[in-house]
Nucleic acid binder design. Structure first.
Lengths: 267, 267
DNA sequence: AAACCGAGTTTCACTGTATGAAACTCCTTC
DNA sequence: GAAGGAGTTTCATACAGTGAAACTCGGTTT
């Protein structure tokens, strides 16, 4: 590994001091946060300001993140490859658990699969990107619903609850109980609710106020997906979800999701 | 002035290499663009990548702007002060031309004044932030309409064209001619079209595809606002508009405008 | 009004770090 | 298998980045 450039690293640390809560910081605050002498910090701030990465409020003298970031974010968002951005994570998960895995967003009363990696096993579930499935009877869908308000769920359920299999949820009562449990334990399970002989587990990615953004799931043949097995898979899914949040970040994920939904995603 | 930090400046230059057209760049491309040896460039790229400001496509090896920018842009956007961000520019303009000046966005068939600085003169026009005026008979409004499609303009005009003064435009024909001229010369003029004895000139801020984002205008008593005077003011307005675009940038301006409009701006 | 304080800014001598030429390693292509 | 091109590592050197300290400028306290 190449030796990092100290001054640059320090400057980037300065930028990372700014958060949702701490929009605006003074020289002194920053130099305390990064543990650098004020003179050094000052020079870095000036450089950053000179290139529009920071700007300074003339009145308060405090620094703010500059407009440059909005320009750059636009470019960054524009070249995110909707089809493939999640693949590395899905592949990791599929390798970890050896099953078909997919990542979904919620659009109205349906989930849309925005990324899929199929299992390497002989008996596997075929799934394809762009597929839309009803939310109320799929693991991914229920992972979303469990973190919506009751009124939002109700309005989604009112769009219809077709019966696909003997175990498709039919009573709203029961479904609400399921969703409550799902919220408590943090993962959703569908046992042949949409297709016979197919089970699935899903874990949502939530923002800080517990709103669901994405749902990651593993799907497989019922005989391989016992309840215990599915519970065991939750751990793998969770850790991949964490990796996604760490590498990409909640704001970026939200931006990607809204880009996908607005593009009327379908392959 | 403090001496800038060379390595940091260079690294920021690297970031600025990425544009709408050139999303993804290889080491060699970047080192050519910034005129630095590959080893230096390489180390900087690694540092930037390490802090999520860049990421590298494993397949192609090319660099992209990182998700970090989306996080930061969120923060930056959140702490833009809707009320005051434009004040320095408005003050500059007001000082330059000695008149009441304002900045407006278009919302449906109305313009909303999002920033105002009143003239220091005895006879001046009172104007206030948050005020909504009809688009079809104000300088700011016409500055917008002139750069919309005919069908968009028509649908706005269909919302009504009340007659406020003897010179309020009444015939769509005539108004369209006015708008065509406005587009050609790049500024809009209203001579007592909304209030008697009050004239105004407005110059829009356009994006690259000539869509109007904001309109900056100077308003004053008709006796001081002869046609020649208004034409002369266009220069001052233009140069302040340029300053806005340079300092803030088109993408950021768009983001600010949509933030304002979505917030149902009203003081 | 003098003394004090805290925040920001500038100075300057020192040294450790960023630098870039060159060497090296994989690739792909001819 | 030689040639070329892209990325990566090495290393000696110079000078760029550093930070202690001095300075400036408001505001506040004595």
């Amino acid at each position: 590994m190449t030796t990092p450039i100290r001054s640059l690293d320090r400057a980037l640390d300065i930028l990372c001091c700014f958060t949702q809560e701490e929009h605006s910081l003074s020289l002194t605050q920053i130099s305390d946060l990064v543990n650098l002498p004020k003179s050094t910090t000052y020079r870095m701030l000036s450089s950053l300001e000179g290139k529009r990465f920071l700007n300074r409020d003339n009145l308060t003298g405090k620094y703010h993140l500059g407009y440059q970031f909005i320009d750059m974010a636009n470019i960054a968002l524009q070249d995110i490859d909707i089809q493939n951005w999640a693949l590395p994570f899905l592949e990791k998960l599929s390798a970890d658990c050896g099953e078909t895995v997919d990542l979904a967003v919620l659009d109205q009363n349906q989930v849309i699969y925005i990324g899929v990696v199929e299992s390497k096993q002989r008996v596997k579930i075929a799934a394809s990107v762009g597929q839309r499935l009803p939310a109320f009877c799929t693991a991914s869908g229920k992972a979303f619903l469990a973190f919506l308000s009751d009124s939002q769920v109700t309005s989604i359920l009112n769009k219809g609850m077709p019966v696909y299999t003997p175990t498709t949820p039919r009573l709203k009562e029961k479904l609400f109980t399921d969703l409550r449990m799902t919220r408590e334990r943090g993962y959703a399970i569908s046992e042949q609710e949409y297709e016979t002989d197919i089970n699935a587990v899903a874990v949502p990615i939530l923002d800080r106020s517990m709103r669901p953004i994405l749902a990651m799931s593993a799907v497989g043949p019922a005989y391989r997906f016992s309840n215990e097995r599915m519970v065991a898979l939750v751990g793998s899914i969770r850790s991949v979800n964490e990796a996604i949040v760490n590498e990409i970040g909640i704001p970026a994920l939200k931006a990607i999701v809204s880009k996908i939904v607005n593009s009327g995603f379908s392959i």
